[in-house]
Computed example of a mutant assay.
Amino acid sequence: MENGNNRSIYIISGPYGVGKSTITKELTQEMDKVALIEGDQIKLMFKGKTPPTMGEEASIVWRNILSLTWNFVEENINVIIDYVVGTEVEWFPMYFSDLNVKIYYVVLSADENTLISRLNERGDDFLIEGSLMLLNQFKNFLPNKDYLYDTTNKRPVEIIQDLKSRIDQFCL
């Protein structure tokens, strides 16, 4: 998926259980000079008796994703971001507009039954309601229209090969 000497940022989003972590980890195995930024790992850094509000948490996580991405890109390291993306897709790319960076955005999706099955299999049934809500939001958020990719009935290796063969379609 790399573009020779060009720096690239790959933003992989989607609801819980859609395969973001599986796909991003496998993608890193096929690339040279790549950093994987997992938003959920940044969220795990919050400690203490009084956690930030959800809005504060999201803001802090995205500021850290932005800073880490910038630092890696400055060092000519490609970046893969694994996190749930909302309106960030509208402002995040502009921070890199002066650099020679290609930004790719893929919103993984699946049908409801597939998401429910995947979350049940991994013991995350408590995420089902939120995942289905996010699935609906992703499908109805106009900026996502051209970046949706259905993972229903596809194995990770198939998804990666397919994404690689048509990655330019996901360029922002």
Rank of each mutant, 00 (worst) to 15 (best):
I159N: 09
I60M: 07
W91R: 04
F170C: 08
W70H: 06
T151P: 08
L68P: 03
N100K: 07
L115Q: 09
D111A: 02
Y10R: 12
E121L: 14
R122G: 07
F96C: 06
Q41C: 03
N78W: 06
N78K: 01
S67W: 13
R166P: 04
I159H: 03
T152N: 05
Y147K: 10
Q29Y: 13
T152I: 13
Y104Q: 12
L36A: 07
E158H: 04
I77H: 02
Y95P: 07
T50F: 03
I42E: 00
G19T: 03
G39Y: 12
F96T: 01
P51E: 00
G130W: 02
N113A: 12
L172T: 14
E90R: 00
I12L: 14
T22D: 00
R7Y: 14
R166C: 05
K145A: 01
R122W: 01
V84Q: 09
I116H: 07
D168Y: 11
D146P: 15
E38N: 13
P93A: 13
K154F: 14
V34M: 09
I42C: 00
D40E: 03
C171M: 15
T24D: 15
V34E: 05
T69C: 13
D124T: 09
L68N: 06
L119R: 00
M133D: 12
D146S: 14
N113H: 02
V84G: 10
I160W: 01
I116E: 03
Q41D: 00
F138A: 00
D168L: 14
I159G: 10
N144I: 11
L44T: 01
